Computed example of a mutant assay.
Amino acid sequence: MSTGNSVDIRQNIITTAEDHFIRYGFKRVTMDDIAREMSISKKTIYQFFKDKNEIVCAATEEHLRREEEQMDRLEQESENVIEFLVKCTKMIRQHVATVNPSAIMELQKYFPDGWQIFLNYKKKVFLNSLMRSLIRGQEDGYFRPDFNPEILAMLRMEEVQLCFDNRVFPRNRFDITEVQVQVFRHFIEGLMTAKGRELLEEYKKNLSPHETIF
Rank of each mutant, 00 (worst) to 15 (best):
M1E: 14
M1R: 11
S2G: 11
T3F: 12
G4D: 04
S6C: 12
V7I: 09
D8T: 00
I9T: 13
Q11D: 02
Q11R: 02
Q11P: 00
Q11G: 00
N12T: 06
I13C: 06
I14N: 03
T15M: 09
H20L: 13
R23Q: 14
Y24P: 04
F26E: 05
K27Y: 05
R28A: 07
R28I: 07
V29W: 01
T30K: 15
M31D: 04
D33E: 02
D33G: 03
I34Q: 00
R36V: 04
S41D: 02
S41V: 00
K42T: 12
K42H: 10
K43Y: 15
K43T: 14
T44L: 09
Y46P: 09
Q47L: 12
F49M: 10
D51Y: 03
D51I: 04
D51K: 00
K52R: 07
N53P: 02
I55L: 05
A58R: 05
A58T: 12
A58F: 05
E62K: 06
E62T: 06
R65K: 13
R65N: 15
R66M: 09
R66A: 14
E67N: 15
E68D: 08
E69R: 11
M71C: 10
M71W: 07
L74K: 01
L74S: 08
E75D: 13
E77Y: 11
S78W: 12
V81Q: 03
I82M: 03
V86G: 03
C88H: 13
T89S: 14
M91I: 01
I92T: 07
R93S: 07
Q94P: 05
Q94E: 14
Q94T: 15
V99Y: 06
S102G: 11
I104R: 07
M105F: 14
M105G: 10
M105Y: 13
Q108S: 15
Q108K: 15
K109G: 06
K109F: 08
K109H: 10
Y110W: 06
P112L: 09
P112E: 07
D113L: 11
G114D: 02
F118I: 02
L119F: 00
N120S: 07
N120C: 07
Y121F: 11
K122S: 14
K122M: 14
K122W: 06
K122R: 15
K124G: 08
N128G: 05
L130S: 08
L130H: 05
S133L: 06
L134I: 02
I135F: 01
G137W: 00
Q138S: 00
E139R: 03
D140S: 11
D140I: 01
G141K: 05
Y142K: 02
F147E: 01
F147I: 02
E150C: 06
L152E: 11
E159S: 10
Q161C: 11
L162R: 12
L162M: 13
F164S: 10
F164T: 07
D165F: 06
R167V: 11
V168L: 12
P170C: 13
R171Q: 15
N172R: 06
N172W: 11
R173L: 12
T177I: 13
T177D: 15
V181K: 12
V181N: 10
R185H: 08
H186V: 14
I188G: 03
I188S: 09
E189Y: 09
L191H: 02
A194P: 04
G196V: 02
G196M: 03
E198Q: 13
L199I: 05
L199V: 05
E201A: 14
K204S: 07
K205R: 06
K205S: 01
K205W: 00
S208M: 11
P209Q: 01
T212E: 14
T212I: 10
I213N: 07
